[in-house]
Amino acid sequence: MLMCRDLATIASDYLDGELGATDRLSVKVHLMMCRNCRSFIGNLRNSAALIRAHSSQTPDPDYLRRLDENIAKALAGKDRDDPGE
């Protein structure tokens, strides 16, 4: 029988749809009976969403400008080297 500790161990696999049919069913049955694990799974799902929402930030604008300048130089150099391309 699947215990809470087992469920916590495979919780991400469940959330990402990586479990086989038998394990998936065991998790679902356990979740129906266990409020604590429902809370854990819900919060773990929320953690993943939090990471996604938080990480859509852009890198440092100064760094991006440096990349632009560097690419502009490379493009200019390429034109000089390969006028035919």
Binding site: T9, S12, S47
Partner: peptide, 14 residues
């Protein structure tokens, strides 16, 4: 790797 990282964030938010 993914599961360990999510647990860390879960513990942090809690």
């Amino acid at each position: 790797l993914l599961h360990r990282a999510r647990q860390k964030i879960f513990l942090m938010v809690e």
